[in-house]
Design a protein around this nucleic acid. Structure first.
Length: 428
RNA sequence: GGAGAGAUGGCUGAGCGGUUGAAAGCACCGGUCUUGAAAACCGGCAAAGGGGCAACUCUUUCCUGGGUUCGAAUCCCAGUCUCUCCGCCA
């Protein structure tokens, strides 16, 4: 289905109109400057043209009702006039839409203001950082010497930023994925989904990957040039869009979905960043959580979701910290984001392993995802997404935090049932 | 890849040139009845946009885009998607 992307806005012009100064001020927190006069002008012109058009349409309608042949010629003339005005109106509307769709979501009040990640704030630190009696090795050294991780082979078959995971590491990866899934399904009330790994252009637009971040996406080459499909950069895209173009009833909410899928990212703009090891790959597994809720429940759902994510780290006994992203570091669609960072001994620092965001109704507007509330009003839903967790990075964290001096890896207790009760991964 | 059938409101489904924004049913909401519930009966129930303080009112919308017509859910053309049968295939 081909759709005009700019038909939809992430911001409602009605709300902006009501208090434009306030709106501009809120958006300025995200380092985006808006041209007030331009917005007002386009909005007024648009409405003026709509009015003109509607008056003519009414006149025309009445003529056809009378079935008076004498007036038929006039009706034809009116049609031409309508066409002219309509063209102008659509053009104006398009300009307005383009302008509005370049504006990111409004941050919540309690989000720290700042230009970049320097203004992020640490909220919580948990778990015990292990005191190593030897120099902890990075995951890629552990993996290579056990012959369970092969980067050279991957670059031979595919290219850079890919990896072969072999033998017990592959089992560990699978165990992690299954462990997390079971946890979210059985304890946290999420429903498991096995979704398509490709998404249409319109779907990518819904969650905000398109049109602005097209260069980060892998596009699949298709015979039909009008048909565009992309490998999902995260299951968020496909899970969130499950409610696209729907009007849900209240009893469908909250909807909580979980999927473990490969994710594909170009990592454009990350050249030279994390080139060693599997921290930053073009392909990685991730267990993704998505919640569809009533807008007023956004904040509490974000807290809940973040707890679901950190709960996994608690069970794996991995040390981590939780930070809240500043207005300058948040993603385009988010109103508030928590990042969870896991401790990596080889780097002697915390690295992102999960990101949980509330997007309020921002994505829902693009997707036209709505529900009927108690008063039977049709409102946009709110969407949230979070990693629960990034499997690739969880694997790294296990390897580094559970390594022994001889290069073997102790299997965390909670994973043993998923690994035929294996105690330790070693060369033997 | 070949051959057909279809796309209508939250859902199912009628309508196939003129008060049709759209029958009927389900779901949902309100009421009567009931100790309470169910059943039965009565009533309500689309979205987007414009105008109005408001009650309200106007316009658009029956997959999308074009065309025919004074007038299109209904006719014509193009496209998208779905289903059935055959072929191919994990």
């Amino acid at each position: 289905m081909k759709r005009k992307l700019n038909k939809k806005n992430m911001h409602n012009i009605k709300d902006i109109r009501d208090n434009i100064d306030n709106f501009i001020q809120l958006i300025s927190k995200r380092n985006v400057k808006l041209d007030k006069n331009n917005i007002i002008e386009l909005d007024q012109k648009n409405r003026k043209l709509i009015k003109e058009k509607e008056n003519l349409e009414k006149e025309k309608k009445e003529i056809s009702k009378t079935k008076n042949k004498a007036l038929f010629q006039k009706s034809k003339k009116i049609s031409l006039e309508i066409n002219k005005i309509n063209e102008l109106q659509l053009e104006t509307k398009k300009k307005l839409d383009n302008l509005l769709s370049s504006i990111p979501n409004i941050p919540l009040n309690d989000v720290p203001e700042g230009k970049d990640d320097n203004s992020n704030e640490e909220i919580e630190k948990k778990g015990t950082i292990r005191n190593f009696e030897f120099k902890p090795k990075p995951h890629y050294e552990l993996g290579t010497s056990l012959d369970m991780m092969d980067f050279e082979l991957a670059s031979k078959t595919t290219g850079s930023r890919f990896v072969f995971i072999k033998n017990k590491f592959a089992l560990l990866e699978r165990a992690l994925s299954n462990f997390m899934l079971d946890n979210h399904i059985n304890k946290n009330g999420y429903t498991e989904i096995s979704p398509p790994l490709m998404a249409s252009e319109n779907t990518m637009f819904g969650t905000g990957q398109l049109p602005k971040f097209e260069t980060d996406q892998f596009e699949v080459k298709l015979d039909d040039k009008n048909d565009r499909k992309f490998l999902i950069p995260t299951a968020e895209v496909i899970l969130t869009n499950m409610v696209k173009d729907r009007i849900l009833s209240k009893k469908d909410l909250p909807m909580r979905l979980v999927a473990s899928t490969p994710c594909f990212r170009k990592e454009a703009g990350s050249y030279g960043k994390d080139t060693k090891g599997m921290i930053r790959q073009h392909q990685f597994y991730k267990v993704e959580l998505v919640s569809i809720v009533e807008p007023q429940n956004c904040v509490q759902e974000l807290e809940r979701m973040t707890k679901c994510a950190t709960g996994v780290l608690d069970l794996l006994k991995l040390p981590y910290r939780k930070i809240v992203l500043s207005t300058g570091d948040m993603g385009f669609s988010a109103e508030k984001t928590y990042d969870i960072e896991v401790w990596l001994p080889s780097e002697n620092k915390y690295r992102e392993i999960s990101s949980c965001s509330s997007c309020s109704s921002f994505q829902a507007r693009r997707m036209k995802a709505r529900y009927k509330n108690d008063k039977k009003e049709t409102l946009y839903v709110a969407t949230l997404n979070g990693s629960g967790l990034a499997v690739g990075r969880a694997l790294i964290a296990i390897l580094e935090n559970y390594q022994e001096e001889d290069g073997s890896i102790v299997v965390p207790d909670v994973l043993k049932p998923y690994m035929n009760n294996l105690e330790k991964i070693s060369n033997n």
